[in-house]
Structure formats: C-alpha cells, structure tokens
C-alpha cells in the first residue's frame, strides 16, 4: 500500500535544507512507528520519495512525500502519531492512500506549484512585509503578454537561456502578495525567484528582498486544471 503525506514547513524550519528534511522524516517514521517498507540488501533504506525539493529560506503549506507501507494504518492515526513526534515548523496535514501505479508517484505527477511572494522591508526578517506597489500590479498583465521573457537559468549541470513565460500559468497581484502558479516537476520547472528577477528587470526596478511561500504542489488533470497532489489520495479508514 502506498501513502502520500502532505506537510507544512514554516518558521525556523525554513533553514533546514531538503536532504535534512528527508533525514528528519526518516527518523520521524521510526518515532511514530509508521509501518514503512524498506528496500532489501545490506543497508536497507526506507521506501520514501519527495515530490519536489523546497529551497532553503522558502516556507510551504503543501509539501509531499510518498511512502510504501507494509501494513495498513488509518489516516487519522498516522497523522496524529506523526504530529506527536514532529517539531515546531513541520506539521503533518494529511496521510492518504494513493494508487500503487508508479505513474501516480508524486515526483511523476507534479506539474505545477503555486506561490505567494511577499515584499519585505529587508532580508533580516520575513515577517516585516510591505504592500505590493500599485505600479507592479499594473505591470503584471503587460509583463505576461510580452512575446517572450528570456532569462539565464542555472542548473547543477549547465547554464542556459530559457523563455520563462510559457512556464508561468498564472500571475496576479493580491492585497499583500503576488500569487503565481508555475510549472514544476521533472519536465519543466520554474522557480519563483527567477520570475521576480525578470519582472523587476522588466519594470527597470532594482533588486528587492522577497519571501517566497509555496502554497501547494499540483498535478494536471485531463481537463487541464491543476489540483493539489493530495486530491489524488483517499482517506485510509
């Protein structure tokens, strides 16, 4: 049986990098006595995979990991047990059964992620926020209707020019933040800081301090809508 865990990451935990969050969950599984399956061999490891890494400094309301279970455990029990052994800054939101099919894995189905971008007074604190300037609000539609928006995208292996506009599915100003829905996953992936960099450059404005908050990781349905990965799961009763 496969299960998908959705969790929030906030507060001081934003300083804990992806690999350490993985380690955290490995240990949390043992503390919570979740019946998780292991691989074979001399050094067995837990069968666990994360949908999308989250960069250091970013908070999130919707992070996902899939695990394989050796026996059934109810969603209610699993969530309660995990929340009992977690730390301030990581909350378990749900624990749901997902299809066995490999194509259903979080990593495979991830197609987009949405973010809130907050403008800060300074990088010193992500809590001291400024309103989004009206001028920016006005510029967003124009920015999005440009023919293309080329940026330098650095990956581990290479650096290349890409047009980011096709990867921005939605972008709009809200009262206290900018909302954006961006391509995510193994095929194409766009980080929100790249968008803001390009947007400021487009407006001929200087660099500003931002805080990025991920709202959810989403999959694309047949009718083209983007649903949270947790929508693919069902409650274990």
């Amino acid at each position: 049986m496969k299960a998908r865990i959705k969790f929030r990451k906030y507060g001081v935990m934003k300083f804990i990098g992806h690999l350490d969050v993985m380690r955290f969950f490995q240990k949390a599984m043992r503390r919570a006595d979740i019946p998780i399956a292991f691989t074979g061999g001399y050094s067995p490891h837990m069968i666990m995979s994360f949908a999308q890494p989250l960069g250091v400094g970013i908070t999130s309301d919707g992070e996902y990991l899939d695990i394989e279970l050796t026996e059934k455990i109810t969603s209610e029990k699993a969530v309660a047990r995990l929340n009992q052994v977690t730390v301030e800054g990581i909350d378990i939101v749900s624990f749901l059964e997902i299809p066995e099919d490999k194509k259903a894995s979080g990593m495979t189905v991830t197609a987009a992620a949405d973010y809130q971008v907050f403008l800060l007074k300074s990088m010193e604190s992500s809590d001291d926020r400024l309103a989004i300037p009206e001028k920016w609000q006005a510029h967003i539609p124009a920015f999005l209707s440009e023919k293309q928006m080329i940026v330098w995208k650095k990956t581990k292996k290479s650096e290349k020019e890409v047009d980011i506009l096709p990867m921005i599915y939605e972008m709009r100003a809200e009262a206290d933040s900018i909302y954006m829905l961006l391509a995510a996953g193994s095929e194409q992936n766009l980080k929100p800081d790249l968008v803001m960099e390009a947007f400021l450059r487009y407006m001929k404005e200087e660099e500003r301090p931002f805080h990025y908050h991920r709202l959810d990781i989403r999959t694309k349905t047949e009718n083209g809508s983007f649903l949270p990965l947790s929508d693919m799961g069902k409650e274990i009763l």
């Binding site: 507060g11 001081v12 300083f15 250091v56 400094g57 301030e88 300074s122 990088m123 010193e124 604190s125 992500s126």
Partner: peptide, 13 residues
C-alpha cells in the same frame, strides 16, 4: 514561535 538570535539575512548567508 521562538525568536532566533540571528536574523534571516545572516542565517541564509
């Protein structure tokens, strides 16, 4: 929530 002794800018650097 606990307040940290170091600010975000330092911690991220």
């Amino acid at each position: 929530m606990r307040k940290l002794a170091l600010n975000d800018e330092i911690l991220l650097k």
